[in-house]
Design a binder for these strands. Sequence first.
RNA 1: GCCGGUGUGGCAGAACGGUUAAUGCCUUCGCCUGCAAAGCGAAUGUUUGGGGGUUCGACUCCACCCGCCGGCGCCA
Length: 419
Amino acid sequence: MDLYSTLTRTTEPLVTLHPDRVYLFVCGPTVYDYSHLGHARTYVVFDVLAKYLRSTGKEVFYLQNITDVDDKIINRAKEEGKSQNELSRKFETEYLRDIHSLGIDAVSYYARATTHIPEIIDQVERLIARGVAYVTETGVYFNLDTFDGNGELSGQERAKRVSRVSDASKHNPHDFALWKTGEYGEYTWDSPWGRGRPGWHIEDTAISEKYFGQQYDIHGGGLDLIFPHHEAEIAQMESLEGKHPMVRYWMHTGFLTVKGEKMSKSLGNFITIRDALKTWNKDVLRYFILLSHYRSPLQATDEGINNAAKALEHIRAVAKKDLGENRDIRKAFTDAMESDLNTPAALAAIQALATSGDIGALREYGDILGINFLRETSAPLSVLQDIRAELRARKEFEVADLIRERMVAAGITITDAPL
RNA sequence: GCCGGUGUGGCAGAACGGUUAAUGCCUUCGCCUGCAAAGCGAAUGUUUGGGGGUUCGACUCCACCCGCCGGCGCCA
């Protein structure tokens, strides 16, 4: 499989550290609020990546962190008069519920920041011992001047950067916090540098080092994490023992946009996953997301999602008779997936598979994409269909039409065969 | 300002230097149909933001210009 890596800005064949195993880490959410469709896009994409890799026989260890200690959590908890633990557990649960209802279930293990405090402290200690971090009265900071590779991922030059977080005790404005000393309520821990809490970037490297080691295969996340977050991760991890590169394949998903602007909490132009699920089902939403390439911007509009719904219905309506395997189109599907997860081209192949009647492929590939391409028939449904068929045969159209009307109103598509 | 991305028919969106630029939605017409939907068949429509360069050949590579989006220590 070929993947585009932000690190090299090129598409390269995926060569993993262990031949049949893939270590995949994806930055998870900060659990202080409900997740929106922009988050859904990223997590659907990596869900499909993991499922595809597994379908090719790879063993995929998909690790995702849960950021449950953070300024936003502290502030939100204070606003709502809740404890940080209460708030973060609640939204962690809601997050998992939302993504599960989107059929996202490929993650092997979720790792909370707060349950990895010893690992975090240990990593910070080692960074200090390596001479790349220093202690001040406000915390522990990473000395970016000790790290040559910084800027590799984003192309940003260190000298041009000025931190918004001003702290007089920092040696340089661009240095970032590994540990913040102070009392932050219940989420405050003892450390060799006094009581405090972890900085933002350290949890990811502490967690990934624990489960994967200092080098692994793929690190994913949204485009907005490249700088500074992923740059900081590289600086931290590669400074431990100098292993380079920390990961070879950095995958970044493009933004979901609304009227040309990035969907985000701060702009207030977001639609939560659960709200979207009131209008559309998970198959439609996944189809819509996968209809564009993961690195391209994707416009979220009702029209766009409705079009996806129609296209999906079309596939289901066409895919009826099983006419056996179509090897050429199957190859078109896997070629598309192999080519940097080109899901739009893969979905074009799905269309062709439906037309050609390769039901087996639709089932198999549907599992990879997490989309049901086949019309579901339940027992009650087919009973109603049988009754309608009988009524129509007797030319009792009024009752038959009434049933149809009600079924359509209930969102069930009716297709009558000619009498 | 610096860095990164992006610009393909009405819309969404492929094409990874080489036949008529996929596919879906929309539109139009025909068939089918108890009616409708669906389905089937066909049609209209882009010459790929701009002007250059490399090449026998460029949507595809290079430099530049324009537009749009994003990042610049909050963010999937």
